[in-house]
Amino acid sequence: MTKVTLTVNGRKMSGECADRTLLSTFIRENLGLTGTHVGCDTTQCGVCVVHMDGKSVKSCTILAAQANGSEITTIEGLSKGDELHPVQAAFKEHHGLQCGFCTPGMVMAATDIIRRHGGNLDEKTVRAELEGNLCRCTGYHNIVKAVLAANAEMYGAKQAAE
């Protein structure tokens, strides 16, 4: 057993788990944050994506023990109270989801893509960068639209604030 302490969405949280426990399991079962989903056994679908120390990772293929001491952001940590994060708002506005199963991973992947490209995004890049996130419902079209719209919103907002 290992005692794992993480800063999750800005709050220090700890739990005891077996060394083989996956980060996704720890987040869902020890911490009760079930927004992070698990959809495959092969590290391919991306519904489990969270940010670890600011970078998107697949939490189903990292041990909780590996993550010990790190800062984690999950889908629950994006909104400010009732105010949706611009990426969440764009997914709603542009109908970027149907069943919603892939959405937490898509949104966490999208926020990471926007962070890395700092406003410089085109459709081709978004499609290539969503390589590790599968959606069985939408056909991706509206997801890509939502990411581009959120990027414009966030980048525009950033410029306005300067």
Partner: peptide, 9 residues
């Protein structure tokens, strides 16, 4: 290689 999340690890 793989996807962005794989490339981060």
């Amino acid at each position: 290689i793989g996807d962005p999340h794989v490339r981060h690890m």
